[in-house]
């Protein structure tokens, strides 16, 4: 393992301290926690937005804390859901009296820890609602199983629900628009090389030089198919087609595109993928309203990418365009 770290057991604390040092006017760490909050939290009479999850997905989630997006992000250990007491601290830190909204990625641990925290907050009289993001089409959607994972599409939920809350939306309105985003966003990823959790010291899986893993999650969990490496066009084709097949996209629809790098894939390659994604959408008469290419939801130093499409209506377009001062998502 070759990493620029001090102590594998201190990577989260060290990172958060460095992050807040970089944005001293915008962010703060809630004392004695791994919660990063807006400097001015709690904002009174605004719905507070809390998200979070395991670390290792930077800039998610603390990079999305800021005016117009999240009020707080809870950082767990690397790839490990934060604990209920930490989520509860985040809820308390952002409760401005209008309720708190939780954006949870659909992983067993995240859902359990956030729900326990919500129960603790409810017992204290804080009004809490939540949405569970499950945009990864690589995984079968079934109510009998764990269901789909939440990946890069989650960033759209942060942005749009955050804008709604910033505009004065009620807890019910924030929840409604978050659910609308979840219903209209789909993603799929692939990986070329694994990543190493600092405290584990070993790669999460092994891929041969000529192999790729399609359907890879963002925690190094194996994907759904391992095959020989293909061209960017073929990869973009496979990911995008699976996304397009999942919900109804019609000619004339408007979408937001996100081509997300997993940590060590250069922007050059992401743009090459984006070229094909745009071509495929143009072929189908689907209009691209906005494109995001870069690292939004990474998996440490994994190489690979994901493609997300969000189907937009007027409300979603307006909220997507609204101002955000979050360090990793300025608009």
């Amino acid at each position: 393992m070759k990493k620029i770290i001090n102590d594998p057991n201190l990577v989260v604390q060290d990172m958060l301290a460095g992050m807040v040092a970089a944005f001293p006017n915008d962010l703060k760490v809630v004392p004695n926690t791994t919660v990063v909050a807006r400097k001015d939290a709690p904002v009174s009479n605004k719905v507070g937005l809390v998200s979070g999850g395991g670390s290792g997905h930077e800039p998610a989630h603390a990079g999305y804390v800021g005016q117009g997006m999240l009020d707080a992000a809870v950082a767990g250990e690397v790839f490990t859901s934060p604990t209920p007491d930490q989520v509860y601290e985040a809820i308390k830190a952002v409760d401005g009296g209008a309720g708190v909204f939780l954006v949870i990625k659909n992983y067993t641990g995240d859902v359990m820890n956030f729900e326990m925290a919500a129960e603790m907050a409810a017992a204290e009289g804080i009004n809490v609602e939540q949405v569970v993001v499950n945009d990864d089409v690589a995984v079968e959607d079934s109510s009998f199983t764990t269901g789909r994972r939440g990946i890069a599409g989650t960033v759209f939920v942060h942005k749009i629900a955050g804008a709604k809350a910033e505009a004065g939306g009620s807890l019910e309105e924030v929840k409604a628009v978050a659910e609308k985003v979840v219903a209209n966003v789909r993603s799929m990823g692939m990986a070329l090389s694994p990543c190493t959790v600092p405290a584990a010291g070993e790669p999460s899986f092994v891929l041969a030089d000529n192999e790729m893993e399609v359907g890879m999650g963002i925690h190094g969990e194996p994907g759904i198919a391992r095959k020989e490496i293909a061209t960017a066009d073929e990869i973009a084709q496979e990911l995008t087609q699976k996304v397009l097949d999942d919900i109804e996209f019609n000619s004339g629809d408007e979408v937001a595109v996100m081509v997300n790098g997993l940590g060590s894939t250069p922007e050059m390659e992401l743009f090459i993928v984006n070229k094909k994604v745009h071509a495929m959408l143009a072929d189908r008469g689907i209009k691209v309203y906005k494109t995001f290419v870069g690292e939004y939801m990474t998996s440490l130093e994994m190489a690979g990418c994901s493609v997300s499409l969000l189907k937009l209506d007027e409300e979603l377009k307006e909220l997507l365009d609204a101002e955000s001062k979050a360090p990793a998502f300025r608009s």
Partner: peptide, 12 residues
């Protein structure tokens, strides 16, 4: 365990 384990194992 609830406050130190994290993941799914902590709550369970």
């Amino acid at each position: 365990l609830m406050s130190k384990v994290g993941g799914a194992s902590g709550p369970l």
